[in-house]
Design a protein around this nucleic acid. Structure first.
Lengths: 237, 237
DNA sequence: AATATTAAATTTGTCTGACAAATCAAGTCT
DNA sequence: AGACTTGATTTGTCAGACAAATTTAATATT
């Protein structure tokens, strides 16, 4: 039935077709916008049935590599990482541990882009950040209105001039709101304790450091800004 | 033919089936190891044909959510992000810009995990890092033997106790070697210039800072360690 | 002749039915 | 009881059919 095996998992024909298609696109130097042969031709060229081919195509469509326009056939697209990841990063299917890992991941990433922010940021972008911060009035314990919260961090990612990083923020945002909501009770005491110690860092504080060009101070502050999550995560390990 | 639309892209039946399956798994509290109904039953329950169902299943298999054992039926697995991303992160299909973004992404992430490293690292892990560093004799211009290079950074990611972050390193490693190889010529002069200024930071330097518990020094050093890439990337933007 | 309408052809999306291969279960034979 | 055979089940794959949409071609109308 299938001829190749790896890791005890049979490599099905569909797997092979998927791979062959990728090689085919690469070999024929088909790039974004290229029209690819229709299903019957492809199936014929590969010597497989249309159903098997379609299963492989379905995967490539999911990854965003192929887009189908009825009648006009299929065209190649640049697959954003977003396409494939969006479907997997879903609180429905990921374990709690993985969700925590993602929160941790996101925090690390935002800390890591600090020097880029200072390298790239323009005065216009500082103004925009200012607007966003003013839009979000501070409530108790660092709980910003959600929109401002999202926009502030999105803007930071945007400043890196790195589309993939910016997209990443959008992808994992649902994970964050999911965790924030589900473990609200666990976050509250941590926030209260941090506030008691005067260690809460607000968006406004971060922005001031950016304005002052204080990169070192910002790096410390951004870590402190995420201390709620860090404490929560470290307590759980 | 299809009833729903979004973003001008028709939502096909397969898309809906994919979503319904995820909801079904969640609603019935099916977790890792659960056996799910066979294809004919699922198709019947959803009121769709087997081919459409199989296209959706094929996607879930690609994501690693479902594993099929012939005859025994299908069982649910924890889908690692790796599964879905590995296929997309492929120099064959990603544009050069996205590959650069990924390099940038990876650097940011490794800078961002610095505090975790100091928080979690054990003396055993320091010993292991020591072995890895000694294994890799330094060649010219920071070009470590590839295995040591890979192992050193893998170990750092491992110390974070974050599986997702550790997996990420493994996934994008091919991208790094691809870029390193393809743009070797561009990296060389940058490295030479950095060495002239005495600004090259080796793995050995990083390890010494870890041993000394010098977190601040490490954070500066790790950024400097990646300065080759940063310079390369910033020149390109 | 130019435009509007209609018909035909093309291509994806989906269904149904069929068969092969693998494997598990059970029954049968020695 | 153990080895062998048979049958049932389920995934993997193919083939053929039709619907829907839409482009292209053909035809009719003014």
């Amino acid at each position: 039935m299938y001829h190749l095996e790896l890791d005890n998992k049979p490599i099905t024909l569909v797997d092979q077709i998927e791979d062959k298609l990728l090689n085919y696109f690469k070999a024929n130097d088909l790039s974004v916008g290229s029209i690819i042969p229709n299903e019957i031709e492809l199936a014929g060229a590969l010597g497989v049935g249309r159903s098997a081919l379609r299963e492989a195509l379905s995967r490539l469509k999911m990854m965003g590599l192929i887009e189908t326009r009825t009648r006009r056939g299929m065209i190649l697209k640049e697959p954003s990482l977003l396409g494939a990841m969006k479907r997997v990063i879903d609180p429905r299917i990921l374990s709690e541990n993985t969700l925590f890992d993602l929160l941790d991941f996101r925090v690390a990433l935002e800390v890591g882009i600090s020097s880029d922010i200072f390298y790239y940021i323009t005065s216009e972008e500082i103004d925009e950040l200012d607007k966003i911060v003013r839009m979000g009035q501070v409530f108790n314990n660092n709980e910003y209105p959600l929109i401002s919260e999202f926009m502030f961090h999105s803007k930071l990612y945007e400043i890196t001039r790195n589309k993939t990083i910016a997209e990443f923020q959008e992808i994992i945002h649902p994970v964050l709101t999911f965790i924030k909501d589900k473990f609200k009770v666990a976050f509250e005491p941590i926030n209260i304790e941090l506030e008691r110690q005067g260690k809460l860092v607000s968006h406004s504080d971060l922005l001031e450091l950016i304005k002052a060009g204080d990169e070192k101070g910002y790096k410390q502050a951004i870590e402190q800004h995420f201390m709620v999550y860090k404490t929560f995560l470290r307590n759980r390990k």
